[in-house]
């Protein structure tokens, strides 16, 4: 079992701070690195993979620094977000070249095993240039897995995959994690992380906003105050009824209807139909107005 540790890591580019005092410890199993675009996920992954020196703090793999230490790649595999791949090679040649560069004893067998893992054996002899986006991604994962690494880092691995490929990749990551490997993948999509990993690290604006069990963090996210836009046949009467509800923190009457601030998402959405029915008010429109991922993350930072 391998352990990746970030201790007080910051990274800045001139005056811009990309990652700010992040500490985390990754052990075996699948961990999701969640955060909106531009949060610093890729910078964190690149520092873990030894492609970026931390401006402050240390990044280690089993106690060894990852920066300037090519020996760590014996135990580490990396799949970057960028789609770059040798278009002129077939997937088999690509995986074989990776195995040879790792100086594996049986590179041909290792290449075939890696291609089987990502279900690419049928197309393994075609040039990668002719592949779909999802197939190229799988070829890159095969090359990263060819030496059976203890640690696998993946930057947005589900990008460009169709639902079936996505499911297969999720199963693959899951099984690799269950085998005791340390898997970290980044994503800006909550549902992807939810389906694959039990542990999550949430990064917002370069800072670690939340860390730990996904269900706990998810509960924090769903229990946060929500803002809804409501339109009904009688907005003022509905406002009076709603303000008496414990799940409602406040109601604004506007020209376009009501803006309701609910303290609890579940209680409010269950209570509203009952109130409307009892009062004889027809609800024409109910829209959650702050459901963007950014607002969820912002709440986590403030929490």
């Amino acid at each position: 079992m391998s352990n990746v540790e970030l201790a007080g890591v910051s990274r800045w580019y001139g005056n811009v701070v990309a990652v700010n005092d992040v500490s985390m410890n990754l052990g075996s199993g699948v961990t999701g690195l969640l955060g909106p675009n531009g949060a610093g996920k890729t910078t964190v992954l690149h520092m873990m993979a030894g492609f970026l020196a931390p401006s402050k703090g240390t990044v280690t793999l089993d106690g060894e620094p990852t920066w300037g230490n090519p020996a760590v790649y014996r135990r580490l595999g990396l799949v970057t977000e960028r789609e770059s791949v040798y278009d002129f090679l077939s997937a088999y040649e690509f995986a074989l070249a990776s195995a040879q560069l790792h100086r594996l004893a049986q590179p041909e067998a290792a290449a075939r095993r890696a291609l089987e893992l990502v279900e690419l054996t049928d197309a393994q002899d075609r040039r990668i240039g002719t592949y779909s986006k999802g197939m190229r991604q799988r070829a890159r994962v095969a090359a990263a897995l060819v030496h059976d690494p203890e640690v696998l880092l993946l930057d947005e691995p589900f990008n460009g995959m169709d639902p079936r490929q996505r499911l297969h990749m999720m199963e693959l990551l899951h099984s690799l994690g269950e085998q005791g490997r340390t898997i970290l993948f980044s994503s800006h999509i909550l549902e992807e992380v939810e389906q694959v990993s039990g542990t999550v690290q949430v990064i917002v604006s370069g800072r670690l906003a939340a860390s730990g069990d996904f269900r706990t963090i998810r509960r924090l996210m769903t229990n946060r105050p929500h803002v809804f836009a409501v339109q009904s046949s009688d907005d003022r009467r509905l406002a009076v009824e709603l303000i008496g509800q414990p799940s409602v923190n406040g109601v604004d009457v506007t020209r376009d209807g009501l803006t309701v601030r609910a303290g609890d998402y579940g209680s409010f959405t269950r209570a509203l139909p009952k109130i409307a029915l009892a009062s004889g008010i027809r609800v024409r429109r109910l829209l959650p107005s702050d459901e963007s991922l950014e607002s969820v993350f912002s709440y986590l930072v403030e929490a």
Partner: peptide, 15 residues
């Protein structure tokens, strides 16, 4: 430029 160098750099090779 195209990022393919990373495939070689992620190998335990002396530079």
């Amino acid at each position: 430029d195209d990022g393919t160098l990373l495939h070689i750099l992620t190998k335990p090779l002396p530079r």
